Computed example of a mutant assay.
Amino acid sequence: MSHEEVTTTVQLNHTVVHARDRQLSAEFLTAILGLEVGAPFGPFLPVDLGNGVTLDYYQMRDEPIQAQHYAFLVPDAQFDGMIARLDAVGVTYYADPGHTEPGRINRLFGGRGAYFDDPDGHNMEIMTRPYARP
């Protein structure tokens, strides 16, 4: 099998998101993105995304949580609603990943995007166009 054949068949299936309160964090994300929290699966609380990838929220009780970055490609028609839901719950969004431009969105690659923190400090990103790669 060639390298090209392998890279076209490999897909991300799921990833674990560490949380202090898996229910709270999963519900926060689903409320913003307009999704639903799935039924618990062992120690995980899944959030299914539209492309077959699942975020499995896992509760961390005593260990520190290392903040991660999660980027979501969202339909342009739903972007304004997501921003409105962030505003409604009092969560500041930013135009940049370093969170230096509060209350603003970016217009990268002909789309719109914004960054915000979830309850555990993970840097979440919503964007309507994927990043152009060379």
Rank of each mutant, 00 (worst) to 15 (best):
Gly52Arg: 12
Phe109Met: 08
Thr15Asn: 01
Gln78Leu: 12
Leu35Ala: 07
Ile32Asp: 02
Tyr57Met: 01
Ala88Lys: 01
Val91Gly: 08
Pro64Glu: 00
Arg61Glu: 13
Gly103Phe: 10
Pro97Asn: 11
Pro75Leu: 05
Phe28Cys: 03
Gly38Asp: 03
Val6Cys: 08
Tyr57Thr: 02
Gln59His: 07
Gln66Val: 14
Arg20Met: 04
Asn106Gly: 11
Glu125Ser: 06
Tyr70Phe: 15
Pro64His: 02
Asp62Arg: 05
Gln66Cys: 06
Asn13Glu: 12
Asp117Lys: 14
Val37Cys: 01
Thr15Met: 14
Met127Leu: 11
Gly98Thr: 10
Asn13Phe: 02
Asp118Trp: 00
Pro40Glu: 11
Tyr131Pro: 03
Ile32Pro: 04
Thr128Asn: 10
Pro130Thr: 11
Tyr93Lys: 10
Met127Gln: 11
Thr92Met: 12
Met60Val: 11
Met82Phe: 03
Ala95Phe: 06
Pro130Arg: 15
His14Arg: 13
Ala26Gln: 07
Thr100His: 13
Thr54His: 15
Val17Arg: 00
Asp62Ser: 13
Tyr70Thr: 12
Val89Thr: 14
Ile105Val: 15
Met60Pro: 00
Phe72Glu: 00
Gln59Ala: 12
Ile83Asp: 00
Thr100Arg: 13
Asp80Trp: 00
His3Gly: 07
Asp48Gly: 08
Leu12Cys: 10
Pro119Asn: 08
Pro119Gly: 09
Thr7Ile: 10
Gly90Thr: 06
Glu63Ala: 15
Val16Ala: 05
Pro97Arg: 13
Asp117Pro: 03
Ala19Phe: 04
His69Lys: 09
Phe116Leu: 11
Ala39Gln: 14
Pro40Val: 11
Thr7Ala: 09
Val47Lys: 02
His122Trp: 04
Ile65Met: 04
Pro46Asn: 03
Thr9Pro: 00
Asp117Phe: 06
Thr54Asn: 06
Thr15Gln: 03
Gln11His: 07
His18Tyr: 14
Gly34Glu: 08
His122Leu: 01
Asp117Trp: 06
Arg129Tyr: 10
Pro97Glu: 11
Val6Ala: 15
Gly98Arg: 13
Ile83Gln: 12
Asp117Ile: 04
Val89Leu: 13
Pro75Asn: 07
Ile126Gln: 05
His18Val: 00
His69Gly: 09
Asn13Leu: 09
Val37Thr: 14
Pro97Met: 12
Leu108Gly: 13
Gln66Phe: 09
His122Met: 03
Val6Ile: 15
Asp118Asn: 02
Ala88Tyr: 00
Asp96Ala: 05
Ala26Val: 09
Pro46Gln: 04
Arg133Asp: 03
Tyr57Gly: 05
Gly110Val: 02
Gln66Asp: 11
Ile32His: 02
Glu5Cys: 06
Ala132Phe: 10
Thr128Gly: 04
Thr9Leu: 14
Ile32Met: 00
Leu24Thr: 13
Ala88Ser: 11
Ala77Phe: 07
Asp21Gly: 08
Gln68Val: 08
Glu101Val: 10
Ser25Gln: 13
Leu12Glu: 09
Asn106Ala: 04
Asp48Thr: 11
Asn13Arg: 10
Asp117Thr: 12
Phe41Arg: 15
Ala39Pro: 10
Pro64Asn: 01
Ala132Gln: 14
Gly113Glu: 06
Met127Thr: 12
Ala114Asn: 03
Leu86Asp: 05
Asn123Thr: 08
Leu29Pro: 03
Arg20Ala: 12
His14Met: 04
Ala95Cys: 03
Ala88Pro: 02
Tyr131Cys: 03
Tyr70Asp: 05
Ala84Thr: 10
Val16Glu: 06
Leu45Lys: 05
Leu49Gly: 06
Met124Arg: 01
Ala19Arg: 03
Ala71Gly: 15
